[in-house]
Design a protein around this nucleic acid. Sequence first.
DNA 1: TTAATAGTTCGATTGTTGTCGAACAATAGA
DNA 2: TCTATTGTTCGACAACAATCGAACTATTAA
Lengths: 112, 112
Amino acid sequence: MKILLHPDKADIHLSSVLYALSDPVRLSIISEVRKAGECTCGNIEVPVVKSTLSHHARTLREAGVVKVRVQGTQRFLSLRTDDLEERFPGLLASVLDAYDTSDEKITLSHLE
Amino acid sequence: MKILLHPDKADIHLSSVLYALSDPVRLSIISEVRKAGECTCGNIEVPVVKSTLSHHARTLREAGVVKVRVQGTQRFLSLRTDDLEERFPGLLASVLDAYDTSDEKITLSHLE
DNA sequence: TTAATAGTTCGATTGTTGTCGAACAATAGA
DNA sequence: TCTATTGTTCGACAACAATCGAACTATTAA
């Protein structure tokens, strides 16, 4: 089984996290992950093909935003809430709250 | 005199703001602006030439992060603290606090 | 063993970004 | 009017990123 690299908490960098969060598709992903607590790539509804989704999941993982747990053929994503809170207090919550109350949310209707 | 375009408060978008904040040079700029309250491009110490600095200032302005006030040949930058707080409560403060307590700060020593 | 499922990786394409230097514009001061 | 000073714009370049489809890997189920 392949090892998925996650940065240590101390190696999570502000600019990388902000960059990872600056893409509408990735904002949508982490918003869904927060709601579900944990979810597989297949359960995330975003208007991109799965190779693109995989790329975004990797970006989020490598930036330290999400943790990916492997179980069988599935990968469960969850937010690194505690690590992020410790490194950047309040940041993740303010981003997620802002996203959920914004009109920037993307949905499958973007495919039409 | 040229008119500098600033987005209306309602047109400030989360992903654009996060993107604008995801560059180390731009983080350094807004950190200096916060400390000074208002400052000109010339007073900002970043390890880039002035055309690059001008480009970053424009990115921050167009994202809605800073306001630029023209006085003579100088442009005074200030943070759009109130607008950002209203749109994305807590976001700017958490980013600036995280930056100032991080070890990611860039200085002129990066030129050496 | 075969087939289905869940994701990843790769190559290609298209577009964006950060950077610089040179040229330009606008203002202030002598 | 001449000359600094301050900053913008432009062109070029190299690096990077978002996207897709196709091929691939790994696991589970039949």
